[in-house]
């Protein structure tokens, strides 16, 4: 691996870009992700998490076992919106912005 090696294929992020964030003080995969977009693509870090964790371990000197894994989030695998929307639940916590605006002075 050299500095131009692609670590995240989805977002095309290379070793150099990851090292730049490590120099800022990043210590976790998610720190690296938010600044570089590494792991934000369709595979959701399934390919890059090990490589990035290795780079973090090398850079910080922490053993690999102490590097927290990428945070997994639903839906885990690409899912059509209509599949998620297919229930009849009522929007109780999801509100339209307009419903909130109250023109009366508080």
């Amino acid at each position: 691996m050299d500095k131009s090696t692609i670590v995240c294929r989805c977002e095309e992020i290379n070793v150099d870009e990851i090292e730049t964030v490590l120099k800022m003080g990043a210590e976790t995969f998610d720190d690296v992700k938010r600044i570089t977009r590494c792991g934000m693509g369709p595979c959701q870090a399934k390919m890059c998490v090990k490589h990035v964790s290795n780079l973090i371990s090398e850079y910080t000197g922490k053993p690999l076992a102490e590097i927290p894994p990428a945070r997994a989030r639903m839906p885990l695998k690409i899912t059509r919106m209509r599949v998620l929307a297919g229930t009849e639940s009522h929007a109780s916590t999801v509100k339209a912005v307009f419903e909130e605006g109250d023109p009366d002075e508080k």
């Binding site: 369709p42 989030r73 639903m74 839906p75 059509r80 639940s89 999801v94």
Partner: peptide, 27 residues
């Protein structure tokens, strides 16, 4: 899951074409 489903409902009721969009992640 309940809020994710409600949010997906909101997406489709605001912009129907989003029914066919792939959801990659929630946060």
């Amino acid at each position: 899951l309940d809020v994710i489903q409600e949010t997906a409902n909101m997406a489709v009721s605001f912009v129907p074409a989003l029914a066919n969009a792939n959801v990659v992640r929630s946060f």
